[in-house]
Simulated scan of single mutants.
Amino acid sequence: MRAAVYRGPGEIEIEEVPRPQVESPTDAVIRVTHTAICGSDLWFYRGLSDREVGSRVGHEPMGIVEEVGEAVTSVEPGDRVIAPFAISCGECEFCRKGLYTSCEEEASWGEANGGGQGEYVKTPFADGHLVRVPDRHADDEDTLRSLLPLTDVLGTGHHAAVSAGVDAGDTVVVIGDGAVGLSGVLAAQRLGAERIIAMGHHEDRLALAEDFGATETIAARGETAVERARELTYGGANHVMECVGAGSAMDTAIDVARDGGTIGYVGVPHGVEEAGLDIHGLFRGNVTLQGGVAPVRDYAEELMADVVGGTLDPAPIFTKTVDLDGVPEGYRAMDDREAIKVLVKPWD
């Protein structure tokens, strides 16, 4: 089969690799019909995080079940399924409490499991991991585009809102105008926030944030942005969603949080250690910091119900679509901020 392979900073190549096979009774092999490039992929693409040269990349697959092991009962060949970015067994202590990202099995995409940006993937725990798409929506391309973000960014944005304690009537500040931040705006709107203030650096993305439910936007940078956010929230917000992961974004989150407020953080941390977390700002204001890597499997059915019901549509975050050969160009487009998020259709 063919799959995207990391060959060093700025270099993604499409190569022939072994196709994953059912080897265990709990395995399922999926033909990938839709997948995506994630903002977190840009960290290794830019050389800002470690990645083994020659490793397969991607973690957001959706597709058709091709083959299952003899112990699999929840899906069968021909089913359309979503495969959340964190592989989970569904049975360990952490999976049972909904913290699927801490699964004790520690399985991941890549190598024998295929890599999420390729023609096939394997999950070693089909019953604990896969989410079946209802048959009536399994071949509706518009619905499938809207369901694909359930593999990661939609659930991650929702986790930011839940971690920040967003509820009906609240005012919330969302930091970040990438796919996760925009999904966070959707999540805050879905949870009933009355005011949603989106902070970012790109006017076109902030315009999409308004389409998603943001009531105000801030495109300024640095202290000017903080001052504007504090002005709009009369001194700070009780609920702040940090959806970037950079040290500067975390500093902004702390600066715009009201005393006694809560920051829900889901951005993969980069540069936070070097910049130094403002623990004194958190301590002085009794600000709660809550969140982490999003257990999107825990939210999948809840969010899917709204997507297929037509009340939740994250599909506009996909501003570029490529086939498998176009994946290297997709990385470049996201790196150059020419695309918010790239949808990949390996078989087109």
Rank of each mutant, 00 (worst) to 15 (best):
P328L: 00
D170Y: 01
R7H: 11
E13K: 12
A209T: 07
A275H: 11
R56Q: 15
H137W: 15
G110K: 03
G10C: 01
T123I: 09
G260N: 00
V293W: 03
S24C: 01
L277V: 14
A83G: 07
D251V: 02
S49K: 14
T33H: 12
V180L: 13
V287N: 00
R132M: 14
A107H: 13
D140I: 03
M250D: 09
G326W: 03
Q290S: 14
D152E: 08
E93N: 14
R221E: 14
M1P: 11
A86T: 12
H270V: 12
T101N: 15
F318P: 12
P124T: 07
A249W: 10
V296W: 02
L144D: 12
E302K: 05
Q21T: 14
G310P: 07
I317H: 07
L182V: 10
F85Q: 03
A229E: 06
D167H: 13
E11L: 11
V68M: 11
A168Y: 14
E91G: 13
E302G: 00
D27L: 08
Y6V: 08
P269D: 10
A294F: 03
S183Y: 02
E141D: 15
D27I: 06
E227C: 03
R284F: 09
R190V: 09
T233N: 04
D204W: 06
G39S: 09
I37A: 01
E70K: 11
I37S: 01
E111D: 15
D142W: 01
F44P: 15
E203F: 01
E227H: 06
L130H: 14
T311D: 14
